[in-house]
Simulated assay, not measured.
Amino acid sequence: MTVHVLILCTHNSARSVLGEGMLNHLAARLGRDVRAHSAGSAPSGRINPFAIEALANAGVDTRAVRSKSWDEFGREGAPPLSVVITVCDSAAAEPCPVFVGGAGGQPVKVHWGYPDPSNAEGGDEARRRAFELTRQAIGYRMLQLLALPLEAMDRAALQAALAAIGRS
């Protein structure tokens, strides 16, 4: 059964997109039945070009990536979410909608904060570097997530493991 992971950031244009792209890419490479999605509370409607560039440079297919509202994942017919990860502090502080969890339960929620690479000072090269460093940091945590026996973990164990990854 597919494990669905939703990655949230306010505008769904940079960090959450990096998370979605990296988790899907790594899961496919490792043969794991994990599917990442991303969304935002106030989506910008566009993906930051530096996010697309960082993912493409890492060999990640970005054709299906789009900026979307988290409301899509609270509706009937949405994928049953096992995990919701916030990657920006503003999204973590917002009240999330009720998401459909697997087996009728609520998904495990965790916060893995990253500075916004869009705010890097020093021009385009500095932003490119910030996006690449953020992609690498997110990718590292996604590899740790994929090393977990997700299908076999109970809610409390999954919550503890994901929180520990966020502290690393």
Rank of each mutant, 00 (worst) to 15 (best):
M1I: 08
V3K: 08
V3W: 06
V5W: 03
C9P: 09
T10I: 08
T10R: 06
H11Q: 13
N12E: 07
N12Y: 07
S13N: 10
S13M: 12
A14T: 04
S16D: 02
S16L: 01
V17K: 12
V17N: 11
V17Y: 04
G19Y: 02
G21Y: 09
M22V: 02
L23I: 02
L23K: 04
N24L: 01
H25A: 13
H25C: 09
L26K: 12
L26A: 08
A28L: 15
R29Q: 15
L30Y: 09
R32F: 02
R35T: 12
H37N: 07
G40C: 04
S41F: 07
P43R: 07
G45K: 02
R46E: 14
R46W: 09
R46P: 00
P49M: 05
A51E: 07
A51F: 08
I52N: 13
E53S: 14
A54G: 10
L55D: 07
L55F: 12
A56C: 07
G59I: 12
D61V: 12
D61S: 12
T62M: 10
R63H: 14
V65T: 13
V65M: 14
S67W: 00
K68H: 01
K68P: 06
S69W: 01
W70A: 04
W70N: 04
D71W: 08
F73E: 10
F73Y: 15
F73I: 04
R75C: 00
A78L: 00
A78Y: 03
P79G: 10
P80L: 05
V83Q: 03
V84P: 05
T86A: 04
T86H: 05
T86V: 06
V87Y: 03
V87W: 00
D89C: 07
S90P: 00
S90C: 06
S90E: 12
A93C: 01
P97L: 11
P97E: 06
V98K: 14
G101E: 08
G102H: 15
G105A: 15
G105W: 13
Q106V: 10
Q106K: 15
K109F: 11
K109M: 07
V110M: 03
P115C: 05
P117Q: 14
S118K: 15
S118P: 01
A120E: 06
E121N: 13
G122D: 13
G122F: 09
G122H: 05
G123C: 10
G123E: 05
A126Y: 07
R127T: 08
R127W: 01
R128C: 08
R128A: 13
R128F: 01
F131H: 07
E132K: 05
L133R: 15
L133P: 09
T134Q: 04
T134E: 03
R135G: 03
R135P: 06
R135F: 01
Q136E: 13
I138K: 00
L145E: 09
L145P: 00
L146R: 02
A147W: 02
A147T: 06
L148P: 08
P149I: 10
L150W: 03
L150Y: 05
L150F: 09
E151P: 03
D154Q: 12
D154A: 09
R155D: 02
Q159M: 15
Q159F: 15
A161L: 11
L162T: 10
A163T: 13
A164G: 08
I165N: 09
I165A: 11
I165H: 11
I165S: 14
I165W: 08
G166I: 12
S168Y: 01
